[in-house]
């Protein structure tokens, strides 16, 4: 049984490909390697919200069932949002960016070097990039947003040590048919994520969070 080196509370063991866990009692960000556990930072305090997702919620994306095992909350100048970590098992993960009723499900992709260069050029600029287009795998994306973001807090199982105030640069692109592309660069490197928007009902959710005064939607499965 692992315990938090900071507060001594019991800690969870790591999941395959997700070496980090957060301490539910002191918010320490813990790196777990077998029986070895060390404190690598502060995960921050997750603020209250009314997201219907929670740890353990199960969603189906393109026929594959996954479970929510972690979350990062990010903020920018004019707002903040949740990025939920959906674990399909076997090291396959996706991020679920939440936008009140809409869920953008993003998986890592490896674009060609020239596309990667164009994205990082655009992402590095502070302004004048809105409306620029990039073609990836025959899909044409238009830059909709470029901003500096920072992590408010993280919780659960995570692939990288990202805690409170961790900064990141991000470039968001959209296609005409509702697909999305995100380029990100932070202290751990850069990456490109592609996906599209879903409504909650499309994801056959189970184990949604219950709220006082609200009935569960009909499409919600039991725990």
């Amino acid at each position: 049984m692992l315990s938090c080196p900071q507060c001594g509370a019991p800690a969870q063991s790591a999941l395959p490909g997700l070496p980090l866990v957060t301490c539910t009692s002191c918010n320490a960000l813990l790196m777990v390697d077998g029986d070895n556990i060390r404190n690598v930072g502060d995960s921050g305090r997750m603020p209250f919200d009314v997201s219907p997702l929670q740890m353990g919620t199960r969603l189906t994306v393109e026929g594959q069932r996954g479970e929510i095992v972690g979350r990062e909350r990010w903020a920018w100048d004019n707002g903040s949002w949740n990025e939920w970590l959906l674990d399909f098992g076997g090291g396959k993960i996706a991020w679920v960016a939440e936008e009140a009723g809409y869920y953008m499900i993003m998986s890592a992709i490896q674009p060609r070097a020239d596309v990667l260069k164009k994205l990082s050029d655009l992402g590095g600029q502070a302004w004048g990039v809105l409306g620029e287009t990039v073609q990836v795998d025959k899909v044409r994306y238009t830059v909709s947003d470029v901003k500096k973001v920072s992590c408010v807090a993280s919780e659960g199982h995570l692939p990288e040590p990202i805690g409170a105030d961790f900064p990141r640069r991000s470039l968001d692109l959209r296609s005409k048919d509702g697909r999305a592309l995100t380029w990100q660069r932070d202290a751990h490197g850069s990456g490109v994520w592609a996906g599209r928007y879903y409504r909650l009902a499309e994801l056959q959710p189970a184990g949604l969070r219950q709220f006082d005064g609200w009935s569960m939607p009909r499409y919600a499965g039991a725990r």
Binding site: P47, D49, V50, M55, A100, Q210, D212
Partner: peptide
């Protein structure tokens, strides 16, 4: 490990200007 606990859907905040209590219904959004 989902929780069956029923979460509150409203968060009370205090207006720093008039001191009135406001109910926040879309916390986080």
């Amino acid at each position: 490990m989902t929780t069956d606990a029923v979460a509150p859907s409203v968060k009370a905040i205090t207006c720093p200007s008039c001191g009135g209590t406001l109910e926040l219904r879309a916390s986080g959004f």
